[in-house]
C-alpha cells in the first residue's frame, strides 16, 4: 500500500500537485493552505507530483520504483566529487 507524506513546512501551497494528479489523490486544505492527501488508495505512483512540486515537499513510500538506466553513472561519479 502506497504511503504519501507531505512536508507541511516545505509545501508552498501552490496546488500544482492537486491540478496535475489524474486521480485526485490530493486536495488543498483551505484552512492551512497546504496540500493534503485524500485518496491515497488511488495513487498509481506515476510521480508526476514529484516532478511538478517546486518545493520537493512529498515522499512516496512502498511503491514500484521504475528502472532509471538512463542515468549516466560516470556523470554521477563526477557530481559526487563536486558536491
Amino acid at each position: 500500500m502506497v504511503e504519501i507524506e507531505i512536508d507541511e513546512d516545505a509545501c508552498v501551497g501552490c496546488g500544482s500537485c492537486v491540478d496535475d494528479c489524474p486521480n485526485d489523490v490530493y486536495q488543498m486544505n483551505e484552512e492551512k493552505w497546504k496540500t493534503e492527501v485524500v485518496k491515497v488508495e488511488d495513487c498509481m505512483a506515476c510521480l508526476s507530483c514529484h516532478e511538478i512540486c517546486p518545493a520537493q515537499a512529498m515522499e512516496h513510500r512502498d511503491i514500484h520504483v521504475a528502472k532509471r538506466l538512463y542515468i549516466d553513472r560516470k556523470v554521477n561519479d563526477v557530481l559526487d566529487k563536486i558536491i
Binding site: P22, M44, C46, L47, H50, E51, A66
Partner: peptide
Amino acid sequence: IDHVGPNACL
C-alpha cells in the same frame, strides 16, 4: 495515453 509520469504511465 491517459497520463504520463516519470515513474509510471497510465
